[in-house]
Simulated scan of single mutants.
Amino acid sequence: METVRLDKWLWAARFFKTRALAKKAIEGGKVHYNGARAKTSKAVEMGALIKVPQGWDVWEVEVVALADQRRGAPEARELYRETPESQARRTREAEQRRLANQAFQQPPRRPDKKQRRELQRLQRQQGED
């Protein structure tokens, strides 16, 4: 295989469910090819660095192989290699999100009718002051 379009490669590597979603991300400036914004039809080369957003995370991967057909997930993982910096950043950010979620205490349940009335009474009193 000589050349593969960037949107096709991202789809084949299973970063996006459809080529349309890959195209939308590329055109929106979310995907960076060798540190710069790229067009959808950019030809992917071996050894290129691509930054791809995935939910809360941003993957930085090096192209190891080319493919224009979508295969199974194990085969798709063989198309790229994630950089060590990207792995460290993703684990660090995931840990920060986990700790932030632990700090947030959700109430055990919704207030019942009596508690709602008390809350409303308190809010009215604060509004009068």
Rank of each mutant, 00 (worst) to 15 (best):
Q102L: 03
R14I: 10
R81G: 03
K114F: 00
V52T: 08
G72I: 10
L10G: 02
V44C: 09
K24T: 09
K23P: 00
D112M: 06
N101G: 14
K23V: 09
K24L: 12
P84Y: 11
S86L: 11
E75L: 15
V4D: 07
T40M: 06
G47S: 06
G29P: 01
P74E: 14
R70M: 10
Q115V: 05
R37I: 08
L122S: 11
R98D: 02
G29Q: 06
L99E: 03
P107M: 07
V4L: 12
V4Q: 10
G55N: 09
R124S: 11
P107G: 00
Q125E: 12
K23C: 03
Q102C: 00
A43V: 10
A100L: 02
A100Q: 02
H32C: 11
R89T: 13
M1L: 13
V63F: 10
A12Q: 14
T91D: 13
G28R: 14
R109N: 05
F15L: 05
R19K: 08
A25I: 00
Q126A: 15
A48M: 07
R70L: 11
R90Q: 12
Y33E: 02
Y33I: 05
Q106E: 09
D7F: 01
R77A: 13
R98S: 06
E2A: 09
Q54M: 13
T83N: 07
G28E: 11
A22M: 10
L6R: 14
L21M: 14
G28T: 12
R19G: 02
R5G: 01
Y33G: 06
L66A: 07
K114M: 01
Y80C: 02
V44T: 08
I50R: 11
S41F: 07
T40R: 12
Q115I: 10
L79S: 00
T18F: 09
S86E: 07
T18E: 08
P111W: 01
E95H: 07
Q126R: 15
W11L: 15
N101W: 01
I26S: 03
Q105S: 03
D7T: 08
E62S: 08
A48S: 14
K23W: 05
V31A: 04
V63G: 11
R14H: 10
K51S: 15
E85Q: 15
E85G: 10
I50E: 05
K51M: 14
R117F: 01
H32E: 11
K23I: 06
W59G: 00
K8C: 00
K39R: 15
A76M: 10
R92M: 12
R81P: 02
R5K: 15
L21T: 13
T91E: 15
Q69V: 11
F16T: 08
K17I: 05
D112I: 04
A38M: 11
G47T: 00
V64P: 04
I50N: 11
V44P: 13
R98F: 06
L49A: 04
G29S: 00
E93I: 01
A88H: 13
K39S: 13
A12C: 12
R81E: 13
Q69P: 04
E75C: 04
R19L: 03
R19E: 02
F16M: 11
A76P: 06
